[in-house]
Computed example of a mutant assay.
Amino acid sequence: MAERFIQSVERAADILELFLISKPELSVKEISEQLGLSKSTVHGLIKTLEHRGYLQQNPDDLKYSLGLKLFELGSFIGNQLDIVKIAQPIIKDTVEKLKETVHLVIRQQDELIYVEKLEGPHTLRIYSHVGKTAPIHCTGVGKAILAYQDEKEVDRILSSTKLESFTEFTVTDINEIKKQLDFTREHGYSMDDEEIEIGLKCIAAPIFDHAGNAIASISCASPKMRLTEDRLPVVIEGIKEAAFEISRCLGYKDVSHSKK
């Protein structure tokens, strides 16, 4: 079966790519002539791309250039690939030490995305997979990142997020969530105790970039019955050490957050 492509999307992509092989600034007329499209068609596409931030117009000569939205996307992809590449050997070592499944999650605006997952030797059927989003309010990985945002940002995220209940243990009260965030800041790790899935317990720790921003987190997911009183401190320390090592590789210098 032949692939079906949307013409308007292809034309929009052609316009963006034209700036890569032509001049940094182009007028509607120049774009129209180079792509063989009518001015009215080009004008409509350009205005849409400008509205979404992919193009910007110079008020002096009315020509267009690539917008900041493309820079944001490029930066995000670059950071994501860098973190995954840096974290992979550390995650592998952590799985070998803890014998449990380890996740790497990054923050993209108000969403959390699983970008790496390495299974432990034990069979563990859980909802997570690379590319899936995670709720920020009731997962260890979410609370590990949220704890290190400023107070206004925490309030904004919690007030604008649907605090969905996944199990009878899911915490949806904002004041209780904030208490958990205080615990994370004090101890350097967060916990999801059957909040997202019955029988599943996760220990997570934040990952900081060179500027000290919590941009990602790493977690160990395990059946609750395996995280005994003797085993739990070992897992907590292992995850904190892994998070610190990834942060260090990203240029993070201040160890006060993750080495408590």
Rank of each mutant, 00 (worst) to 15 (best):
K224H: 07
K260N: 11
P223H: 05
I207Q: 06
R231M: 07
V130Y: 02
E168V: 11
I90E: 04
G188F: 00
P89V: 03
A205P: 00
R248F: 09
P24I: 13
L250S: 00
R107K: 13
K259C: 05
I218Y: 07
I106E: 06
N213E: 12
A214W: 06
L26R: 11
I46L: 14
R125P: 05
G142A: 04
L20F: 06
K132H: 13
S247Q: 03
I15T: 00
A242P: 02
K97W: 01
E50H: 11
G140V: 02
T172K: 07
L45G: 03
H51Y: 11
L81G: 07
A216L: 09
L227C: 04
P121Q: 12
K201F: 05
D209R: 08
A205Q: 05
F166L: 14
E195N: 01
S222N: 13
I177D: 08
D155E: 15
I246R: 04
G188M: 04
F5M: 15
V105W: 00
R231N: 05
Q56Y: 15
S160R: 15
I239K: 00
V28N: 10
K224D: 10
F19T: 03
V235K: 00
L250F: 03
S222D: 11
L18P: 04
K259Q: 10
I196D: 03
A144I: 00
